[in-house]
Computed example of a mutant assay.
Amino acid sequence: MKYDHIQLAYFLRRKNRFVASCRLKENNEVVDVHVKNTGRGKEVLVDGALVALNFSSSTKRKTAYDLIAVKKQNHWYNIDSSAPNEVVFQALLNQTIALPELKGSITLVKREVTYDNSRIDFYFETDQAEKGFIEVKGMTLENENIGAFPDAPTTRGLKHIYELMQAQKQGMHNYVIFVAQFAEIELATIHETMQPELQSAVCRAMKEGVHFLCYASYVSATQLELTKEVPFVLDTPFKDPLK
């Protein structure tokens, strides 16, 4: 995932879930920007943080910039909620993501497919008549080289877990892929104290056969690229960096 029109800025404040105020590094102009992630992001979106803004010339937009990434210490964190889906989609097409327990090769991938009462990120088929769903989640919370999801309670994410369990019972192959927005993590888990019900649902889903995968990423101000798979270990303790 590459961005072609990046400008650097300093984060000032978040006005609401979708809009933030930033000061452009080049000329000190203060601009409103679209925040492409509704998570809290409080561990990275702090006053004065260096951020990457992607410019859009569209006249239909309320803001001319999207907030794409933020720098914390010496590392960039991509917070574009659409980026994880795009990099996973390309990896599926290139077959650089290996889905456990599939016998065949993926021959078809469809985006945003309705199942039950939700839209699941991807539906796939293989040359061995296998079918399944893949839900992608961006992981933006990290501490002590452990990535965790979620950074805020997610009703939608919980709903997806239950529906993937239902699809699993119908003989389909189902996966959740976490795209960690950082490279230097050793494993990933669910942030149980943030949403205990989600942790319980994931535990049940794993017993039903739903697979949970996590990929670390190389992140810069202009790019997000999958680098390696890291273990997903549900019972790993996670310390919230803000508590």
Rank of each mutant, 00 (worst) to 15 (best):
A183C: 09
A205L: 04
D127S: 07
P231H: 03
Q168F: 06
S200R: 04
F11V: 01
G138M: 07
R13V: 02
V30T: 14
Y175L: 00
F238S: 03
D47G: 08
M1Q: 12
F11S: 05
L50R: 10
R156F: 14
N117Q: 13
G41F: 12
K42M: 12
T107R: 05
A221C: 08
M139K: 07
S82G: 10
Y3F: 11
H34K: 12
I68H: 02
E26Q: 11
N117L: 14
L226N: 02
E130L: 03
K72F: 00
F124D: 04
H173I: 06
N54Q: 04
E142V: 15
Q199Y: 15
A52P: 06
A69M: 05
E192G: 09
Y162E: 02
F89G: 05
A64S: 11
E101L: 08
V70W: 00
K131H: 13
S82A: 08
V31P: 07
E192V: 07
A221N: 12
P237T: 03
Y123E: 11
Y115W: 15
D66R: 01
N145K: 15
G41C: 10
Y65C: 07
N94I: 08
V19S: 06
V230G: 01
K159N: 14
A98R: 15
K207H: 15
K239C: 11
Q181S: 15
G132V: 05
F11A: 04
G41A: 09
